[in-house]
Amino acid sequence: MARRVKPSLYFSVDIEADGPIPGPYSMISLGAAVAGRQDGDGYAPEDPEAYTFYRELRPISEDFVPEALAVSGLDRDRLIAEGSEPAVALAEFSDWVREVSPGAQPVMCGYPASYDWTFLYWYLIRFTGASPFGHSGCLDMKTLYATKARLPLRAVAKGTMPRELLSRRPHTHHALDDAIEQAELFSNLMAWPGR
């Protein structure tokens, strides 16, 4: 008898940070959008604007890399005064993920997932003690494309992808905008037969 596998619900996640690694540096914003659902019958995209989450977070250390902070355009002094407490924001995020994925296994997807997942997972464990994605529930869109395109990973960049795969939305470095944009990329990649 075959074991029944839960469907996967894919969450496109984008974070902005003020440095290269969590701990010494801070995740300063978190955006997420439900990209789609996959079960034994295939992948079904969702409207990426239908289910979204966004928070700006208070920095957790005094250290930051000015060039990294400049990418997001966020004001560090404002975040220190008005940003969400990380423990509160990450608990709200975990609750939201569970709320929108009943009966499905949540999977984080990112472009590239390695950077966003590092911050997201570290923050989830540090501030909530658990991850709704488990310890390995992430999928890297860059790797997905490289595999389907039969290219070495280092040869992959959004600029080298076929135009029909890319979202028409701009990449703004606002975490929610970029999560929505990348949710569209993910759905296009899931539907793409590859080369």
Rank of each mutant, 00 (worst) to 15 (best):
P162K: 09
F186H: 12
P7D: 05
R154F: 05
A130T: 14
E164F: 13
L57K: 06
E56A: 14
P66V: 14
G103D: 08
S29N: 00
F53T: 02
M161Q: 01
L124C: 07
E184T: 09
T147F: 10
R195C: 12
A87W: 08
L151Q: 09
H173R: 14
A33N: 06
F11K: 00
S61Q: 04
A104V: 12
E56N: 04
M190P: 06
D47Q: 04
T147E: 10
H171F: 08
I60G: 14
A113V: 08
F186Y: 11
S101Y: 05
L185F: 02
I21Q: 15
Y25E: 03
P132F: 01
F53A: 04
L185N: 07
A87D: 13
H171L: 14
S26N: 10
I60C: 13
S84T: 01
L79C: 09
Y145W: 07
A179R: 11
F64C: 13
Y54L: 15
A87T: 12
A183S: 07
E92Q: 12
P22H: 02
A44M: 06
R37H: 02
V71I: 15
G103A: 02
V100C: 07
S114R: 13
L9C: 14
E56I: 01
G137W: 00
A81P: 10
L120T: 12
M141I: 03
D77K: 14
R168F: 00
A104G: 02
R4F: 11
S26C: 05
A2D: 10
R55P: 02
T172V: 09
